[in-house]
Amino acid sequence: MKVVFNSEHYAVVSYVAQHGYELVEKDSGRMMFIQGVQADHFHDAMRQVVTEQQGDSDEIDAFLSDYCEGATQPISFH
């Protein structure tokens, strides 16, 4: 597990062994987990945003907001 992005509004955690990413929307307490091909597409898109915006966290937050819209699930503790 490796935190690859962390801002006031979002966190992205990489799970290398599972070939996946966890995206956490902090404001709403929601998350999503993606694996496989979807994780590859996310990685490529995230890299493009970071490269084009030179790592600006507001732009990355905006990308994550669009990416997570409608797909996140409430975080629950067991």
Rank of each mutant, 00 (worst) to 15 (best):
S65E: 07
Y10W: 07
R30M: 05
V13M: 01
Q38D: 14
N6E: 12
G29E: 00
D61E: 13
S76Q: 15
V24W: 01
D66N: 06
D40R: 07
D61I: 15
G29P: 02
L23A: 01
G20W: 00
T72R: 11
I34V: 10
R47L: 09
S28A: 14
H41K: 06
D56L: 13
R30H: 10
E25P: 00
Y10Q: 01
Q18H: 13
V13Y: 02
V50P: 00
Q38T: 14
C68S: 13
D61P: 07
V4P: 01
D40Y: 05
H43L: 06
H41R: 08
G20R: 08
F33Q: 10
Y67P: 06
E52Y: 11
F63D: 05
F5S: 00
F77K: 11
K2H: 13
Q35L: 07
V16E: 11
G29I: 04
R30G: 03
D40H: 07
F42Y: 07
K26S: 01
G70Q: 10
G55S: 09
G20E: 01
V50W: 12
S57T: 03
G55L: 03
D66E: 02
H19Y: 13
Q54V: 08
V49E: 06
D27G: 05
S28E: 12
F5W: 02
D40N: 09
S65Y: 01
G36T: 14
L23M: 05
R30K: 13
Q38Y: 10
D44K: 08
V37M: 05
D58T: 12
E59T: 08
H9E: 14
Q38H: 11
D56K: 11
T72H: 12
V49F: 11
F5I: 03
V49W: 13
E25V: 02
D27L: 02
S7E: 03
K2G: 05
C68D: 05
S57D: 04
V4G: 03
Q48F: 15
F5H: 00
T72Y: 09
S7F: 11
D44M: 10
Q48K: 11
K2V: 03
E25Q: 08
D61L: 12
Q53W: 04
E69N: 09
S76E: 14
Y67G: 07
N6R: 05
V4T: 04
S65N: 08
Q73S: 14
G70N: 11
V49R: 09
A11I: 03
F42H: 03
G70V: 13
E52Q: 13
K2F: 12
L23Y: 07
A45W: 10
G36V: 14
Q73M: 15
G70E: 07
I34R: 03
Y10V: 00
S57N: 05
V12H: 02
F77Y: 12
H78V: 15
S14D: 11
V16C: 09
G70W: 00
Q48R: 10
V13Q: 02
Y21F: 06
V4Q: 03
A11S: 04
I75D: 15
V12I: 04
H19M: 12
A11H: 02
R30T: 06
M31T: 03
Q73W: 11
I75T: 15
